[in-house]
């Protein structure tokens, strides 16, 4: 636990100092929402499904940038190597990096939800509270997947290109489930009526977290 908290607190301190990831994520989320609002145009399309789609597109792109930045920051001065040969086991390192990415994504998502309400003419009401667990599941799953893939792609010269190519297709099933569940909630349906979609999200969270936990050691080590 000492290793996990040391790495996580170090990441948060670095982020507070530079603000690089959070600013990039919030700006990217804003840009995506603005583009989609103008692209969707009339009020009919800009309903719950449009809002949910915009929110999850923002989540995926923000998560891709956030996880890549969180891990690439370790590339400076070979810091990732310093962590890999430290007494902290690699699974704990994965957990710390995943939690840092999830926190950065959550901050971006808070901003994205506020902007979604404004741009899509929604209300700040109970429906927003019900979307929180859905987004939380999405954030955990995507943070786990993106952290693992950032470690893979970080070993190549085309890290920025490789990351979305790998991450987005693998996340598609969870993305569909997240969009459907979010749209249902924004349309006023209770969470109990969306169990099938939530089940898919939970299943993919388990797959991504367990895969990352088991594979990070292999990925982080040099050949």
């Amino acid at each position: 636990m000492a290793g996990l908290s040391a790495v996580l607190l170090k990441d948060l301190k670095l982020e507070l100092r530079s603000g690089q990831s959070t600013i990039a994520l919030v700006a990217l989320s804003l840009l995506i929402l603005v583009v989609l609002v103008f692209a969707l145009g009339n009020e009919g399309v800009r309903g719950p499904e449009g809002a949910a789609g915009a929110l999850w597109v923002a989540l995926v792109f923000a998560g891709t940038v956030g996880a890549t930045k969180a891990l690439l920051a370790e590339g400076e001065n070979g810091c990732l190597r310093g962590l890999v040969i430290s007494p902290v086991d690699r699974a704990t390192l994965f957990a710390a990096k995943m939690m840092a990415a999830a926190i950065f994504m959550a901050i971006a998502e808070i901003a994205a939800v506020a902007l979604m309400v404004l741009f899509f003419n929604l209300e700040f009401d109970a429906r927003l509270a019900r979307i929180v667990p859905i987004l939380a599941l999405g954030i955990v799953g995507f943070a786990a997947l993106a952290t693992l893939l950032a470690a893979v792609s970080g070993r190549t010269r085309a890290a920025d290109l490789l990351m979305p190519i790998l991450a987005v297709p693998m996340f598609v099933p969870a993305l569909i489930a997240g969009v459907k569940a979010s749209a249902g909630v924004l349309a006023g349906r209770p969470l109990s009526g969306l169990q099938a979609w939530l089940g898919i999200l939970v299943a993919f969270d388990i797959i991504f977290v367990v895969s990352g936990y088991l594979l990070f050691e292999q990925v982080a080590r040099e050949d």
């Binding site: 170090k10 670095l14 001065n77 070979g78 190597r81 040969i85 007494p87």
Partner: peptide, 18 residues
């Protein structure tokens, strides 16, 4: 066991922003 090993590499393993 890694606690018992100290490594100095070409890279410093130090965080520039700390």
């Amino acid at each position: 066991m890694r606690q018992r090993v100290g490594v100095l590499s070409h890279q410093s393993f130090l965080y520039p922003n700390l």
